[in-house]
């Protein structure tokens, strides 16, 4: 089986500062992995490098054996959902935020029905009432789940999650775990939360831009 994500001796420099050094790992379809390490160790940079937001100085990044290039980056981005600590919803109302991607040419013909919207919201323990709320009025945890819902509506299979569990309460966290129990979905996350770590298949530990350890919860 080919890995869905592969980093092969990747080094990244931003403004002449090395932020990732010689990183190599592979992640297979359905795996849930977490990147750990101190602040500034390069965890978020791994996620951002995979979607082409940081230029690779040395080595290669691969998505399903396809190298990251200016051409392949579009395919990578369309298969991947990237959700940060403070996700940008990009519209005044929640409903418009959920439908935002369907305004773009690439998704224009796949606009979901209201039934589908509510179904996805319910999966994330959100009710239909939230659709009419202002994006600025909802909590951080709700924003993250709306961003996740958007990924699910787009049928994304790979999720890059940057510290999303910090804003989630126990119930919402359970909803997110349930969604990602789907073996078709692959997750590469940044987290410190022990519940999250315990549910991940693999833990990558970073230190000053280097991958220092790979293991499972309890043995890292």
């Amino acid at each position: 089986m080919n890995p869905i994500i592969r980093f092969d001796q990747v080094s990244v420099q931003v403004r002449e500062k090395v932020i990732l050094s010689n990183i190599s790992f592979a992640l297979f379809t359905g795996e849930k992995a977490v990147l750990c390490g101190k602040s500034g160790s390069g965890k978020s940079s791994v996620l951002r490098t995979f979607i082409g937001l940081h230029a690779v100085a040395r080595g290669g990044v691969y998505f399903q054996q396809m190298p990251l290039t200016p051409v392949s980056v579009h395919a990578i981005r369309s298969a991947t959902a990237y959700i940060g600590q403070e996700p940008v919803l990009g519209a005044e109302r929640v409903r418009d935020a959920l439908l935002l991607p369907f305004q773009f040419k690439s998704h224009r013909n796949h606009r979901p029905s209201d039934v589908r919207l509510i179904e996805v919201l319910n999966r994330l323990h959100l009710t239909a009432d939230i659709l009419h709320q202002k994006s600025s009025r909802i909590s951080g945890g709700e924003k993250q789940r709306i961003a996740l819902a958007r990924g699910l509506l787009l049928g994304k299979s790979l999720y890059l999650l940057d510290e999303i569990t910090s804003a989630l309460d126990a119930d919402s966290k359970q909803a997110v775990f349930d969604v990602f129990s789907d073996p078709r979905l692959t997750v590469l996350s940044v987290a410190h939360d022990s519940d999250w770590l315990a549910r991940c298949d693999r833990i990558f530990e970073l230190e000053a831009g280097r991958l220092v350890q790979v293991g499972h919860y309890g043995n890292t």
Binding site: G84, S106, L154
Partner: peptide, 11 residues
């Protein structure tokens, strides 16, 4: 971040 979000959403 907003710009990157739009790119990730297919823009």
């Amino acid at each position: 971040n907003e710009y990157a979000t739009f790119l990730m959403l297919g823009a």
